[in-house]
């Protein structure tokens, strides 16, 4: 682990990615300490101000400090990314292994479901779900989990299929090992590397999706700050002030860039073979 970290820091892009990610994660975690104002406190007197010493990124139409909102918005983005990717990984691994190791008919059914989920454009699927269930952070997380499961499931299935015909698995089976043992002890360690890389490269996509849905008013409910809802304010106020758009987009762009650079360096270091597929 430390070795990987050292190798990443030797590459300029990996280093930039790491710095950006660490910077934004820390500032989101310490939002309560760093933020100069309460992110939902209204100060109508100070509305629509440009950047100043008192308000580093200016204020919005309700006089809320944009810098504080951006810091707290980071918490929402990271929470959504971690929970949804974690859950999708868990379910994806399970289904992928069942598809790869189970009977052929079950494999076909699972793959058909994966293909069906992937045939919905993600945002359309998200919007349809939100229309039915109503906007909330939980809905966003659920949609992301459902739409990303196939990404992991497919990788796990392919790996499982290629491992199951190996001699050592046959030997293990002959010795009477249970399926759970074979999957847990032999298959899982073989798929975990590529999965981690895929997951780290999915984080920026998920963060952007959350921001996008909140931008459409389909994600977090106001007044909870989210980068997407700050951008939505910016869109409404576009003829009055550019600052909400700038404030909302800077962390969003930086964190997506950071995770992408980091993910790519990780991939090149750990598994250069994957490069071809992406």
């Amino acid at each position: 682990m430390i070795d990987i970290l050292r190798r990443i820091t030797r590459e300029p892009l990996g280093m930039i990615g790491l710095v950006l990610v660490v910077l934004i994660v820390i500032s989101a975690l310490l939002a309560g300490v760093i933020a100069p104002y309460d992110p939902i406190e209204l100060r109508i007197v100070d509305r629509l101000q440009g950047p100043s010493a008192a308000h580093l990124l200016g204020t919005d139409q309700l006089g809320r400090d944009l810098f504080s909102r951006v810091l707290y918005g980071g918490q929402v983005a990271l929470k959504v990314a971690l929970i949804s990717i974690g859950a999708a990984l868990g379910v994806g691994v399970l289904f992928g292994m069942i598809a790869g190791f189970g009977p052929r008919w079950l494999d076909n059914i699972i793959m058909l479901f994966f293909d069906t989920i992937r045939s919905f454009p993600t945002v359309m699927f998200a919007l349809a779900t939100v229309a039915l269930v109503g906007p909330s952070l939980e809905t966003v997380i659920a949609v992301i989990v459902v739409t990303t499961i196939p990404n992991y499931g497919r990788v796990v299935r392919t790996q499982t299929l290629s491992i199951r015909s190996n001699e050592f698995i046959k030997a293990e089976r002959a010795m009477g090992a249970s399926m759970v043992r074979i999957l847990g002890v032999h298959v899982l360690p073989n798929v975990i590397g590529p999965l981690m890389i895929l997951a780290s490269m999915d984080i920026p996509t998920v963060i952007a999706l959350e921001a996008g849905l909140s931008f459409l008013g389909m994600g977090v409910k106001p007044p909870t700050p989210s980068w997407g809802s700050i951008l939505n304010d910016g869109y409404t106020l576009i003829r009055n002030t550019p600052w909400p758009i700038i404030a909302g987009s800077i962390p969003l762009v930086l964190i997506t860039l950071g995770f992408t650079f980091l993910g790519e360096s990780l991939r090149d270091l750990i598994d250069p073979k994957l490069r071809k597929n992406i």
Binding site: P204, A208, A211, G212, F215, L231, G234, Y235, I238, I245, S249, L252, V253, T256, L257, T260
Partner: peptide, 10 residues
């Protein structure tokens, strides 16, 4: 990496 809606806004 930059989301399309951010490019659209800018």
């Amino acid at each position: 990496t930059v989301p399309a809606f951010v490019v659209a806004l800018y």
